[in-house]
């Protein structure tokens, strides 16, 4: 039972990543692998600044800015140089591996006895896990409201339209290069924030912590959509956050049931592959039934 709060807290911190992945995968309709580099980038930048004596909130803002820059790099590669979005993301991701090592100066940067966002808000509760939960919840609510507002504005509507139909939005006078870059910027800014939060909660930043983040993000998005629906943009945001929490609960349960932690990524990949294949398989089953009736 005492695992519930930490599990939900982890879900909340990672849900910021999931919202970022949702913005590219669903809103912009591109699978952006930059995430695998911008997540540890956010962690690396925030951790390095904290070690250098910065206070947590400015450090998170700088981490966010660094993540946004990485999104812009991918955006420029794919729009200005016409490199396919998937490859653009991979290129930035690989480049960021070196960048992250340079930022941290080594592969792993511990945050022992260093003031983090969570120690700073230690007054909220005696229990450090409750602090992570409360701070995580506040950050997610703040980001959710900001996203909802932004995507309701004219610029936000133009970004959403770009994902649905680039032809349509170009015919209405919007430069889709700009909207795509802007979407990737926002997405990777959020992903970096998530990295910064997770690093502070775990007590370290690691150059390898980005591996598989795209799949974790996708798993959260898909679980959320299936369980909680996609009726409106607001609903989608809530679904993605809840999806991230449910994903963490599922992971906690299978680990409790004795699955070796090393198999976690295999498990997640199978989960996402199955979820992505599901609509097609359902269609095939329906088709077969229809034929059988005919």
């Amino acid at each position: 039972m005492d695992l519930i709060i930490p599990t939900i807290s982890q879900g909340l911190l990672w849900s910021v990543l999931a919202i970022g992945v949702y913005l590219t995968f669903r809103v912009l309709d591109v699978a952006d692998l930059t995430v695998e580099g911008s997540f540890p980038l956010g962690a690396a930048v925030a951790a390095s600044l904290l070690v250098a004596g910065w206070s947590p909130i400015p450090a998170i803002f700088v981490a966010c800015f660094a993540g946004m820059l990485s999104g812009v790099v991918t955006g420029i590669l794919t729009t200005k140089f016409k490199i396919p979005a998937l490859l653009s993301g991979i290129l930035t991701m690989i480049a960021l591996y070196s960048v992250n090592l340079r930022v941290m100066g080594k592969a792993n940067l511990p945050l022992l006895r260093i003031d983090t966002l969570f120690t700073q808000f230690g007054w909220i509760s005696e229990d450090p896990q409750m602090v992570v939960f409360a701070v995580g919840l506040f950050v997610v609510l703040l980001i959710g409201v900001l996203c909802y507002w932004f995507f309701g504005t004219e610029i936000g509507a133009a970004i959403r339209a770009t994902g649905f139909n680039p032809n349509m939005i170009r015919a209405n006078g919007v430069n889709t290069d700009v909207t795509i870059i802007l979407g990737l910027l926002l997405s990777n800014g959020l992903v970096a924030v998530s990295g910064a939060l997770v690093a502070q909660s775990n007590g370290f930043a690691d150059v390898g912590m980005g591996v598989g983040t795209i799949v974790i993000g996708l798993a959260s998005v898909i679980i959320g959509e299936v369980l909680f629906g996609t009726a409106s943009f607001w609903r989608c945001l809530i679904s993605v956050v809840l999806g991230s929490v449910v994903y963490r609960i599922v992971i906690a349960v299978v680990l409790q049931m004795g699955m070796p932690p090393n198999d976690l990524k295999l498990f997640t990949a199978i989960l996402v592959a199955a979820a992505l294949a599901l609509p097609l398989l359902q269609g095939k089953v329906k088709e077969r039934r229809r034929r059988a009736v005919d």
């Binding site: 610029i155 133009a158 139909n165 006078g173």
Partner: peptide
């Protein structure tokens, strides 16, 4: 048209055609 957006949202985008979108 953008299929996933509401009629209202499509019209709002069209109404702004050629004008830089704002916040």
């Amino acid at each position: 048209t953008a299929a996933g957006m509401m009629i209202e949202e499509n019209l709002a985008i069209a109404e702004r055609r050629g004008r830089r979108p704002t916040l």
